[in-house]
């Protein structure tokens, strides 16, 4: 029986205010929860380089050619020209750890049979869509005449 139009508009105005209030409340609750779910990015520099003795089985696994590069695995192989090559060992397909395969002289991912050549290039027809991330390798000699390798992330990375 509300013939008075001002009564109608007053009611709908109040409905709107209450609706806005609840929407605001929901946002105020959901926003912190959503932000809470996204993990904070750890500050501090990540590993940029490591020094490796390629013949030390404790540093480079003799079979799989895997070494530890900061918080991720890397892989060290002798390239086609006989020079040392190092890559991130994280497969570009679905991030399994790749390994050196002596029989085929290729880098192989055991998860989905992805293959890379010794230049880290993905072999067409296998699942990986991109080459492995390449690290720079510098050979150096320490005071005792022992050869070691300095493996570092390129400036572009």
């Amino acid at each position: 029986m509300d013939r008075d139009p001002t009564l109608r508009s007053r009611r709908s105005f109040l409905d709107m205010v209450i609706g806005l209030g609840f929407t605001g409340l929901a946002a105020a609750v959901l926003y912190p929860v959503a932000r809470y779910l996204i993990p904070p990015v750890r500050s501090g520099p990540g590993t940029r380089s490591v020094v490796l003795d390629p013949d030390d089985p404790a540093q480079v696994d003799p079979e799989t050619r895997i070494f530890v590069f900061g918080s991720r695995p890397g892989i060290l192989v002798k390239g086609p020209g006989g020079q040392w090559k190092a890559f991130s060992a994280v497969c570009t397909h679905l991030s399994c750890t790749v390994r050196f395969q002596a029989e085929s002289n290729q880098i192989w991912c055991p998860c989905h049979n992805g293959l890379f050549d010794l230049n880290g290039r993905n072999i067409p027809g296998t699942p990986p869509p991109r080459p492995l991330e390449e690290f720079e390798v510098h050979e150096r000699e320490d005071e005792s005449g022992k050869k070691t390798l300095l493996v570092s992330k390129g400036r572009s990375a």
Binding site: D61, T97, P110, P124, G125, P127
Partner: peptide
């Protein structure tokens, strides 16, 4: 072992195998 090589013959649980094998067959491009 967070830095170890992925063991050969790694497979998911059986109910993910159909998707797993499909992904294995699909080439990068």
């Amino acid at each position: 072992d967070l830095f170890g090589a992925t063991p050969a013959g790694l497979r998911p649980e059986w109910y993910f195998l159909a998707m797993f094998y499909s992904l294995k067959l699909l080439p990068g491009h």
